[in-house]
């Protein structure tokens, strides 16, 4: 699972924002705001990390139970899949 090419992450006024550029604007036209964990998931998906690794990292870093993290990561990935952002 990996984020398609053409998406960039920027910081504006304290917010983390994803924008599609070039060809990617044809599949996604708009902006996505990421919270702290969203940023971690996004960055890991950008380099093609496995879902299990993403869940493990967040579980360790934030001291949240794995089940909750699993559900959140699934929801995030589903949203990206729904928007056709993953390859």
């Amino acid at each position: 699972m990996k984020i398609k090419s053409g998406f960039v992450v920027r910081e504006v006024a304290g917010q983390t924002i994803v924008v599609a550029l070039g060809e990617a604007t044809k599949i996604f036209n708009g902006m996505i705001r990421l919270n702290e964990t969203g940023r971690i998931i996004w960055d890991m998906l950008s380099v093609g990390s496995e879902k299990a690794d993403i869940v493990r990292r967040i579980t360790e870093e934030y001291d949240i139970d794995e089940k909750t993290v699993q559900a959140d990561v699934d929801a995030f990935i589903n949203t990206l899949q729904g928007a056709n952002i993953l390859e």
Binding site: V8, V12, A13, I17, V19, L21, G22, N29, R33
Partner: peptide, 21 residues
């Protein structure tokens, strides 16, 4: 500003290239 920025995004021309962004 952190709240306004999300609202202002609805009112601008979304950049299509990195230089504009």
């Amino acid at each position: 500003a952190s709240d306004a920025v999300l609202r202002v995004f609805q009112q601008i021309l979304t950049p299509r290239d990195a230089a504009t962004l």
